[in-house]
Amino acid sequence: MDDVLRLDSIHAGYQGAKVLVNLSLEVHPGEVVCVLGANGAGKTTTLLTIAGLLRPMAGQMTFGQEDLLRLPPYRIVERGISLVPEGRQVFPNLTVLENLLLGSYCARARSERQGALEEVYALFPRLRERVQQMAGLLSGGEQQMLAIGRALMSRPRLLLLDEPSLGLAPRLVHAIFDAIGVIAQKGLSILLVEQNARAALSLASRGYVLAHGQVAVAGSTRELQDSPRVKEAFLG
């Protein structure tokens, strides 16, 4: 299946303030694409727009043959796009297991629930140990694992990750990125927003640098690493 995510001249924002201006990007099947940029450049807004939490003001947005533009968020999950939001956003008063089961709420994923659960446990053995614990009592790293695991439970074809390393100790950042690497090797497309440019570029094959809601630089990982602009701003 040709599940290309394609954003074409997207304009989006919040009441009055336009954040994304004429943004275009693509994610091809099996690719890991990273999005870099300073605070306020529109990285999170891009992901929220794809996930359907924010309705764009203009532009085109498709996934494979499907038009995503007018779909509510729950339909977008059904189409196979799943977002791991910034700040994890686990359900604190639900158990780890309940959080994971919620990940496979949509009809498409519900039938494959048991298999998905085993895969998540294999990826994050820590979660298996804590199935009955309230998610709010987990450490930050464990919550991030839960958030990623929960997104995988929906059997996505495209995973959107928003700042998975935010607020984590370096050791945990490694663990999380290792896991993302494993997920990528299974062939899942990933769109990764990350402050930690070095870690992001180590996983990605391609990337975009956003500035003021527009694509400032785009290219392969190598090209980005060599770009003086990227070097100065993110790797320096």
Partner: peptide, 10 residues
């Protein structure tokens, strides 16, 4: 508990 996160669950 968190209606935005619930949206992301589909």
């Amino acid at each position: 508990q968190n209606h935005r996160a619930a949206l992301l669950m589909g």
